[in-house]
Amino acid sequence: MWKKLFKNKTALIMLIIIFATTIVGIFAPLFASHDPYEIDVMNKFAVISLEYPLGTDNLGRCILSRMIYGIRPTLFLSLMTMIGTISIGMVMGLLAGYFRGVVDEIIMRIIDVMLSFPSQIMIFAIVALLGVDVRNVIIANVIIKWAWYARMVRTNVMKYRSKNFILFSRCIGNRESFILFRHLLPSISWEMAVLATLDIGWAILDISTFSFLGLGVQAPTPEWGAMLNEAKNVMTTNPVQMIAPGVAIVTCFVSILIS
């Protein structure tokens, strides 16, 4: 696996970017030169310098420091979204695919209903119902996206449930929990891991989009989407304030997709 990875230079570079971003985010206080919340109106729109490598924003806050601290909510919230989505999708897909019959019919009809709605519109609707808060954006994302995973898991479970090792387990009267968690879950987990890594990129994009629209992370918390929102009014006068988080989101998204 490592040999294959080292041969694929693009994947390696992208993985290094993701790894470095995560490390910088985790140890943000070590890398950030300023407090991301520290307002210095006298110093607003400061140009790029050694003290402020990306300049300052409209409130005089260090853009680079805010970018570094912004990694935390962006990655953490997208991870939370993915964990919630995969957990629910996995359980529902396993139940539908393994037990079939009435259980499958009920779960699949719910999934059909969930998938028939345009996802973004539904997320807006759920956020509007629950209130503007980043927690509600995550809940809305999970509610909308679990159905995709459940369908994928169900398809994979159906593929594996007719394999002879599962039939043998059922024939000798092994516990359903053993079959589900020792045979089926590990069998499908690799495929789910690939799907999940692809979707983390989309989750980052979603969280940033909702923060940009003012529905997710709220000011003054540093988050890339929220930073874009704050920067849109000064886009022409101080483009760095918008370009920096924009480039960061795109880089992160592309790195995850390509790696």
Partner: peptide
């Protein structure tokens, strides 16, 4: 108890 041995040994074991 009843046990079974299948034809396709490659898919018979995890």
């Amino acid at each position: 108890p009843i046990s079974v041995v299948f034809q396709d040994y490659s898919t018979s074991v995890d």
